[in-house]
Simulated scan of single mutants.
Amino acid sequence: MFKKIPYSTHDEWLRLRKQGIGGSDAGLLMDIEQHGNKNIVDLWLEKSGKINKLDETNSAMERGHKLEPIVRKLYAIDNPDKVIREVKELYVHPKYDFIRASLDGEIILPNGDIGILEIKTTTIHQYLTYKELWKDEENNDTIPENYLYQVLHYFLVTDYDFAVLVADIRFKCFEDNSDTFDLNKQLKTYTIYKNEWMNRIEELKQKEIEFWSYVTNDIEPPYIKEYPIGIGGKYGRK
């Protein structure tokens, strides 16, 4: 059973989070495209304490922070048969205490089974970006790979059997390079089952163990630099 570490302030949560690998780090460790061109060496510098990363914020992050309790409440209203619980503790893997999780919530089914609630808010400025990230090759709904690995990381910590990702997707368009306006907004729900992703969960665990060995042994990990090479967010390496 995973351990729980309570915290009372945002600064305390940040300190605890820096002592291990969180869900938002998982995609980077699996070499999934990340915003801001952050790479594994940047993450190593942060986790090893060689640099003190400021608590960054921007309008998108502030919007997400404000919307999270609203989306959680909406999901609870639409699912009256389930108990939706906000999580105010940091969860820690029972064996590897550097593998940690901050859940947006938990879903308790009528039979007592518990699952993960993950809430995402995003703004899409180009349809090609939406198609690349939120549709598969057959044009079926899917979720971005970095979001998927965040959920798989949470499976790794909690060993819960299912997760629900609720995504608030806002589409914005630029008209003559002037003011923006909302084209459309969607609230989509995706259910992910742990047993369908066991191989990837194990692969992620090994990647995280390997990365943390670089932190504890003070050895810089192999550097991978990703850079944009074309339209639609495709990336290459050098």
Score class of each variant (00 low, 15 high):
Leu156Thr: 10
Pro222Trp: 02
Asn217Val: 00
Gly27His: 07
Asn177Ile: 02
Gln126Asn: 09
Leu90Val: 07
Asn79Gln: 02
Tyr149Ile: 02
Asp176Asn: 14
Arg17Phe: 05
Pro228Leu: 14
Leu109Ala: 14
Asn139Pro: 05
Gly49Asp: 11
Ile169Val: 12
His153Gly: 07
Ile40Trp: 01
Asn52Thr: 12
Cys173Pro: 01
Leu14Asn: 07
Asp97Ile: 04
Tyr235Gly: 06
Tyr223Lys: 09
Glu62Asp: 12
Lys88Arg: 09
Arg72Leu: 06
Arg200Cys: 00
Asp104Thr: 08
Arg170Gly: 10
Ile107Val: 14
Tyr214Gly: 01
Asn37His: 13
Gln19His: 05
Ala26Lys: 05
Leu148Asp: 01
Phe181Asp: 07
Thr129Gly: 04
Asp11Gln: 12
Gly112Glu: 12
Gly23Asn: 10
Lys225Ser: 00
Ile70Phe: 09
Asn79Met: 02
Asn39Phe: 04
Tyr223Ile: 03
Glu145Thr: 01
Tyr75Phe: 15
Asp182Thr: 15
Trp134Pro: 06
Leu67Gly: 08
Asp176Thr: 07
Tyr193Thr: 05
Leu165Ala: 02
Pro110Leu: 08
Thr216Cys: 02
Asp141Ser: 12
Asn177Arg: 08
Gly236Thr: 15
Tyr214Glu: 00
Asn195Gly: 00
Tyr75Gly: 09
Gly115Tyr: 07
Ile114Val: 15
Arg170Tyr: 07
Glu56Lys: 08
Arg72Asp: 12
Ile107Asn: 08
Asp176His: 12
Pro110Asp: 05
Tyr130Trp: 06
Thr191Ile: 04
Leu183Met: 01
Lys135Gln: 07
Met1Asp: 13
Glu89Val: 12
Gln206Gly: 02
Thr129Val: 01
Leu45Tyr: 11
Asn58Gln: 03
Ile229Met: 10
Thr216Phe: 00
Lys4Thr: 11
Tyr214Val: 00
Glu145Trp: 00
Leu45Cys: 13
His35Phe: 08
Thr189Leu: 15
Lys225His: 05
Asp136Thr: 03
Ala26Phe: 06
Leu148Phe: 03
Gly232Cys: 12
Lys185Pro: 01
Gly27Gln: 02
Leu133Met: 12
Lys47Val: 11
Glu145Met: 00
Lys88Cys: 07
Val166His: 02
Thr158Phe: 03
Trp13Gln: 10
Leu54Tyr: 09
Leu28Pro: 10
Leu152Cys: 02
Asn37Trp: 12
Ala26His: 05
Val164Met: 01
Lys50Trp: 11
Leu187Lys: 15
Asn217Gln: 10
Val71Gly: 08
Glu196Leu: 08
Glu56Phe: 07
Asn140Thr: 03
Pro222Val: 09
Phe162Leu: 03
